[in-house]
């Protein structure tokens, strides 16, 4: 059963992303939206953690939230996917279940 995990808080402010990655099963997808998108950038204290997570889960960020925060797609950790709103919907329908990390 593949789960879509949705995180919307900055990992520099809360442990939502950290806790999510601790509980995400291999094969799950983690989608970062709103403030959480900053967690996918290169060169942060979390980049290694994100790189490591990509070995077992898929990571996606919502492009609109990325742009709104001035983070270029090229600045993301390699392997992180950018999705638009339609892609967000596809992720929801393409997984058996979803869980939010507030």
């Amino acid at each position: 059963m593949a789960m879509l995990h949705i995180v919307n808080k900055s990992p520099f402010e809360r442990n939502s992303l950290e806790s999510c990655l601790l509980h995400a099963k291999p094969g799950a997808t983690v989608l970062l939206i709103e403030d959480a998108v900053v967690g996918a950038a290169q060169g942060t204290v979390l980049s290694d953690r994100i790189q490591k997570a990509l070995e077992s889960v898929k990571l996606a960020v919502l492009g609109a939230d990325l742009e709104a925060r001035g983070i270029a797609q090229e600045k993301l950790v390699d392997g992180v996917n950018v999705v638009d709103y339609a892609g967000f919907v596809d992720l929801v329908t393409g997984h058996d279940n979803n869980q939010s990390w507030l």
């Binding site: 789960m3 509980h23 279940n97 507030l102």
Partner: peptide, 14 residues
């Protein structure tokens, strides 16, 4: 806990 989360029909987060 990860296994418990993985075997649900509906997950509501608070």
């Amino acid at each position: 806990m990860a296994d418990i989360m993985d075997t649900q029909d509906i997950v509501l987060s608070f």
